[in-house]
């Protein structure tokens, strides 16, 4: 079970942010923002090598005292970030990977929505619900 998930745009602005505990949102925003540094760095060094590596999953970005942060970047440089409690040992790399894949497909659906303008923050009840479901593993 993830405690927080975020979608960050190409310009590094927050497009969607959800936490299981809404009181901690600001706190998690800082954490996610910190992990962006690492994503940026990985992207900067990663592009030097292979022209386009098919691997979108970046793996664990940060392992803090209390949380682990994982990252995923789409081809269009949209970043997905998941924060997991460090005490959670159930979630393995594979589960995180599949979580990201589900988020990616949800995101693709949102972008396909003609009423959504790419680049704007995502405000959709439906999307929030499905994101929460992905986080809690109920899908």
């Amino acid at each position: 079970m993830a405690v927080c998930a975020a979608i960050i745009g190409k310009d590094n602005s927050s497009k969607f942010f959800v936490t299981l505990n809404p009181d901690e949102e600001l706190h998690f925003q800082y954490k996610v923002l910190s992990s962006l540094d690492i994503i940026e760095d990985k992207l900067a060094t990663g592009t030097k090598g292979g022209a386009d590596t098919k691997e979108l999953y970046l793996g664990m970005l940060l392992s803090l005292e209390t949380y682990k942060i994982y990252g995923y970047v789409t081809n269009t440089k949209i970043k997905f970030v998941i924060v997991v409690d460090s005490t959670n040992v159930v979630l393995r790399d594979n589960e995180i990977r599949s979580m990201f894949r589900k988020i990616h497909s949800e995101f693709a659906d949102i972008v396909s929505n003609p009423f959504y303008i790419p680049g704007e923050p995502i405000i959709s009840k439906n999307f929030t619900t499905s994101m929460k479901n992905i986080m809690t593993g109920t899908v």
């Binding site: 602005s13 942010f17 925003q29």
Partner: peptide, 10 residues
């Protein structure tokens, strides 16, 4: 610039 409005508000 990065449009993190929540943090900016705070």
């Amino acid at each position: 610039n990065e449009q993190w409005w929540d943090i900016l508000s705070r």
